[in-house]
Write a protein that binds this DNA or RNA. Structure first.
Lengths: 158, 158
DNA sequence: TATTGTTATACTCTATAACTATA
DNA sequence: TATAGTTATAGAGTATAACAATA
């Protein structure tokens, strides 16, 4: 009844049609790394995305910054930031305080609990980074990051 | 989440708190490469995402495959594939034909117009790939792809 | 007038659960 | 019973446009 399990894999994208497919390699790797990040946090009973981690680090290192400044630093629209901040605030990690100098802006900061959580998160991120780099020597890791930066520089900004 | 822009007056993530930040470099690069892909297509009056391109190549090289097989190859759920295919079909690039052997499945294929479009798209992707690799020597490009594959292998599958 | 944060709205990508038709 | 495709629904990320408060 069951048909034989699909024993012949599909012809993939990575042969024939295109030359280098660096973009494809990048996408696949980034996807696997993202999954590892999520798995690392899930296994520790925590839930956080790489983007949320980046946001928390930015707020931690730039306490008092405005939502506009944060959105700019993250490369997203200010309206996009609102629900993200809402969620992090609902989790008790971040606070929006009134700015003492400008009535239009909020002064963002981590709560005490946010600081503690960030320390835990940073440990998990270090473990994650260590794992994804485990197949590479220290110099290969350095090379990879350098090459990635070169590619980023070549990609047209628009 | 979005990519951090190049220049930021804020203290960034890439100093101090963490060791290598390969995951961060990966995200930023992948984001810039994605933007370059979009810009390349927009400038040519076309609209396509890297994911859509990958799907079209897969269908082209595996004509007659089912939606399940395609979803598996793309690493997405079969329900996620439906609206993506709907859109590509509405654009006249892909067709869902009844399978001759299994009444439950569709045999996917590119239309004639889809084949022509894919040829145009492939030219644009080659131009895009050439641009993002323009800062690298041929051997550096090779090295980068190899290192990315090594990282992908180390990231836990979970 | 210009800027900040918010809301309303609209896409896309992603998933799970349930339905249908077929095997 | 199991599988393929669809639908309904939900959550997250993204954006634009418009609005209120403030500068």
């Amino acid at each position: 009844m069951g048909r034989p399990p699909d024993k012949s894999p599909l012809k993939a994208l990575d042969r024939g049609l295109l030359p280098s497919l660096m973009g494809y390699a990048l996408r696949r790797t980034q996807s696997a790394v993202f999954a590892d990040f999520a798995a690392t946090f899930a296994k520790a009973g925590e839930a956080l995305t790489p983007g949320e981690f980046g946001l928390l680090v930015l707020v931690d290192r730039n306490a008092g910054l405005s939502q506009m400044a944060l959105a700019r630093a993250l490369g997203i629209d200010r309206s996009t930031l609102v629900p993200i901040l809402d969620r992090l605030q609902a989790r008790g990690l971040v606070v929006r305080r009134p700015s003492p100098t400008d009535g239009r802006t909020h002064a963002l900061a981590l709560t005490a609990s946010g600081e503690k959580a960030l320390a835990r998160f940073a440990r998990l991120v270090r473990a994650h980074e260590k794992r994804i780099a485990s197949g590479l020597s220290a110099s290969e890791t350095r090379t990879l990051i350098d090459l990635l930066e070169k590619v980023r520089a070549s990609a047209r900004s628009l």
